[in-house]
């Protein structure tokens, strides 16, 4: 049978396309155009300069460390929220989203104050010889904070729908909790975990606000790529800024493709029913 066609397509699609074209596509195209107008040699010279390279290194390594931290913390947090009942569970569940709700600049000054050598955490840590603020460790702390919700929120629904019969089967066979976890539960969580990991990692690569307060921003050691693009702009070196921003944009596209792939996989597992 032929479907009835609903009205409103020209208007709705018209608004959507105009908005997307002006707000999203035009600026990104302008950036690509600007970066492309540099010519391959100049472009390569800028994006492969020592300082740029050092910034990629810091950004990627810190984002990796933050993601590994959030993998452990996020999985534990999701597990506790889904499987255990304890007073304040709903409050903790709501607090998980705070890093998304709290503006990054506010998070930045709060974390810097906590981890500075005279701060609540920075003081005791400095007695142990650990410096967090103004070191790569500070960047990792800021990246971890801003991406806490991703892994929790991707794993939580899968964990909720996990069939208890699968665990019981393992238990009847006499398997230990650890082997049931690694052999049965973890493989079922893996797609959701990986989707969360790629979201968390992408967010960390692009984060700016929370990091610049705590990072120290020293070229070659604590300067993230987003900051370098910003600094080149303030120095009126627009081509360099465009080139570095285009590297970030390209990375974002690659991460988006990876994330979509992971999410499609995660969905195939969750939407079996």
């Amino acid at each position: 049978m032929r479907r009835r066609v609903l009205p409103g397509l020209p208007l709705a699609l018209g608004i959507t396309l105009v908005y997307v074209a002006i707000i999203v596509v035009l600026p990104l195209a302008a950036l690509v155009f600007k970066a492309a107008s540099l010519g391959p040699e100049d472009y390569w010279r800028i994006v492969s300069s020592d300082r740029a390279f050092a910034s990629y290194r810091v950004t990627v390594l810190c984002a990796l460390a933050a993601t590994v931290f959030n993998l452990v913390f996020g999985l534990s947090l999701a597990w506790v929220l889904v499987r255990y009942r304890f007073p304040g569970r709903r409050l903790v569940d709501a607090l998980v989203d705070l890093p998304f709700a709290l503006p990054t600049a506010v998070a930045g000054i709060a974390l810097t104050t906590l981890f500075a050598t005279n701060g609540w955490f920075g003081g005791p840590l400095s007695l142990l010889g650990i410096k967090v603020a103004y070191t790569p460790l500070g960047i990792i702390v800021a990246m971890s904070f801003t991406s806490i919700p991703f892994i929790v929120r991707t794993v939580q629904p899968v964990l909720e729908e996990l069939d208890p019969a699968l665990e019981e089967a393992g238990q009847t066979l006499g398997a230990s909790d650890l082997s049931i976890f690694t052999g049965v539960i973890l493989p079922l969580l893996a797609p959701a975990l990986l989707a969360g990991v790629s979201l968390s990692f992408s967010r960390s690569l692009g984060e700016f606000g929370a990091i610049i307060f705590i990072a120290g921003n020293q070229p070659f050691s604590t300067e993230i790529t987003a900051l370098l693009a910003f600094i080149r702009l303030e120095e009126y070196d627009y081509p360099a800024s465009a080139a570095i921003a285009s590297v970030m944009l390209l990375t974002a596209f690659v991460m988006l493709a990876v994330t979509n792939f992971m999410q499609a996989r995660a969905l195939r597992y969750t939407a079996r029913g």
Binding site: P27, A242, L256
Partner: peptide, 30 residues
């Protein structure tokens, strides 16, 4: 494709967004 483009800003660093706007409306821009 449209759905992906709408989602795009989610993946782009805010700094890249800001720099991009400069190349549209800035003096060096389009």
């Amino acid at each position: 494709l449209l759905t992906v483009v709408i989602e795009l800003p989610f993946s782009v660093s805010p700094i890249v967004a800001g720099v991009s706007y400069l190349f549209v409306y800035g003096l060096q821009g389009l």
